[in-house]
Design a protein around this nucleic acid. Structure first.
Lengths: 365, 365
DNA sequence: CTGAAAGCGCTTACAG
DNA sequence: CTGAAAGCGCTTACAG
């Protein structure tokens, strides 16, 4: 929409009028698909087809439409599209709390991937087990094109059943157990756990403790499993009291460390299932006058920001939650568009061991 | 797909058909406003009025509608509402990166407040200065009912101008400078800065350093200002080299600490403008064999999770970013509904000093 | 390959 | 206080 002025000026008397004019212009200037069709000299059907990248459109038409779109600064109305069509162009991510590097990475990765694909991300918090009513209301209103489920909700049977019934493509991030029909993504936690065991044993440690991660998070089990495998393979004992249950938070890491160090034969190395708990171990070591890594080696997991902050800095396993989220979005789109069947598909993301200051050979090898 | 009927039974041959039936039932069962109107024996206009809590509806009607809504498990279609009406029932929050306790608190508070008000939260990341194209595209499509701007975008003139032009209610979280016409929320950073100064001087410190926060975050300036006021009021000198510029991250806190401690007359206390930087100070102290708090007192800001993790735990100022976000949502709604004019309104959230282990009187008073 | 037209499920003047 | 009807801006069979 253009304004033509010929010789004379438009006089705008007062501030209020200027605002009114602006608002009105805005409204007029907000082009619709009809405006585009008119300018391009085609039907709205054709415009729609071009916009949605459908086949069977002549190149000439395509170009004319694109030119009109550009000239009018046209942006399709999300709500009209969603009402008329069967896609919402919206992705959802569900988690139980907003904090920590782990969630932040997922969030950042998801938003970035979404905006690259022309999608929007809406988030919802489910912090009670089986809040299916809240979830039902949420997906009933948003009708997301796909949904990313993090721990612990990704292991909630009621949640999964609901989503399956509603036929919403979903992907589970680091689930406890993979399911035949459902996409999932994660690193190979078991191998990572084995890597840690091998590394610590390689340093010469023979009494190694482990603080298990949150029981409702998939990584915890697999890391423990791999860790056990490694010790077994090297003939290193792992008595029951060398294991402490943690919950991925600082306090439970500290509690676990105290329990492990109070044993008759305390460990020379502790592997905590995430960095926060490892930081808890470090604080207990400091409190007891144990030098890290000389008296005690400490290994974390995640390589979050905290791993480099603490003193000494943490040796850890790096996993990219950003990548996991980006891959989640990409695969959910592929499922929705029929490019991919979701059956039995698990995406494994690379992990990497990062050695810093908190690990070393034991004092008495 | 056809259904065969033989006698009175419906014969469903294969699995595919069962799925089809389920899907169809789902679709049938997804009630619309028409269904509600029919069941309640009123017009859709009336249903709409009841749903939107408008006046001028008889109590009897209201009850019948609510009963029908409940019976049908009716949920209004978000996209139809948004297309027909002028509200989107969507709130947006913009930030530059997803990490840290500060952002996590805002996020959690916003999502919680939204779901309480029947709104949804969509998030967008603007990590380059003046990404107005991306923002324009975003709000053009989402048309949020309100928008929460965090630092540093809340200080971006181009961003604000765009939002004003589009008449989207916005609130700025902890802006550098308040603006007459725009809502903002934050704690009284200046008073908080003064509180810290008063407290450290009260302990007996006379050589106090400060690591300034990120220059594009509003809190930084005001905290510094209040801190300066306090020292001045008590006649305590604050030479230029007792100030270091930080960026709210661990590394800049460590850098700042080194600079301050390398002075001829090193400080006995350092006030860092957030906890992450304070953790950086702690690590430098450890590295130099300085005992905290005996040789050096350290004060943080925010009371994020990290404040309790580090050893010694940090004395700090607690501010609730959750509350800020919740208040933001509430006030944006009030503006949109005309219950509140956005002019010159700033909401001050309470802050609180938390004393832990990292502060004490100086060794030589 | 293209277009005319119905329809998605609401809201909102406009009448009464 | 209530209802009939237009309209929001798209997508999608259905014809051609």
């Amino acid at each position: 929409m253009k304004l033509w002025t010929s010789g004379s000026a438009i006089i705008i008397p007062v501030e209020g009028a200027r605002q009114w004019l602006e608002t009105t212009l805005e409204k007029i200037m907000k082009a619709t698909i009809d405006d585009v069709a008119r300018l391009a000299g085609v039907s709205v059907s054709t415009v729609s087809r071009v916009l949605n990248d459908e086949r069977y459109v002549r190149e000439a038409m395509r170009e004319r439409v694109h030119a009109a779109v550009k000239e009018l600064h046209y942006r399709p109305n999300l709500y009209a599209r969603n009402l008329a069509g069967d896609r919402s162009h919206i992705m959802a991510m569900i988690f139980d709390h907003a904090g920590g590097d782990y969630v932040a990475g997922l969030l950042g990765g998801a938003v970035t991937a979404c905006s690259r694909e022309g999608l929007h991300l809406v988030i919802e918090i489910l912090d009670q087990p089986s809040m299916t009513d809240k979830l039902a209301s949420f997906i009933g209103q948003i009708n997301p094109d796909g949904i990313i489920l993090t721990s612990p909700v990704c292991n909630d049977e009621a949640v999964i059943a609901l989503l399956q019934k509603r036929r919403i493509p979903m992907i589970r991030v680091a689930p406890i157990r993979r399911m035949e029909q459902i996409l999932s993504v994660g690193i190979d936690d078991q191998t990572a756990g084995r890597d840690v065991g091998d590394y610590l044993i390689g340093l010469g440690h023979r009494r190694i403790g482990h603080i298990i991660g949150h029981p409702e998070h998939g990584g915890s089990h697999d890391r423990l499993l791999g860790f056990q495998e490694s010790l077994k393979a090297h003939g290193v004992a792992l008595p029951a009291d060398a294991l402490a249950q943690g919950y991925f938070d600082f306090a439970s890491g500290a509690r676990g460390a105290r329990a492990l160090l109070d044993r008759g034969d305390p460990p020379t190395a502790i592997f905590a299932s995430n960095d926060e708990m490892a930081a808890g171990v470090l604080s207990v070591a400091a409190e007891r006058g144990l030098k890290v890594p000389d008296d005690l080696s400490v290994m974390g997991f995640d390589d979050g920001t905290i791993a480099s902050w603490v003193t000494p800095s943490l040796s850890t396993i790096r996993q990219s939650t950003r990548d996991m989220a980006a891959l989640s979005i990409a695969n959910l789109m592929a499922v929705r568009e029929g490019r991919l069947k979701s059956d039995a598909m698990h995406i494994t993301v690379r992990h990497e061991m990062i050695i810093r200051q908190s690990t070393a050979p034991p004092r008495q090898p």
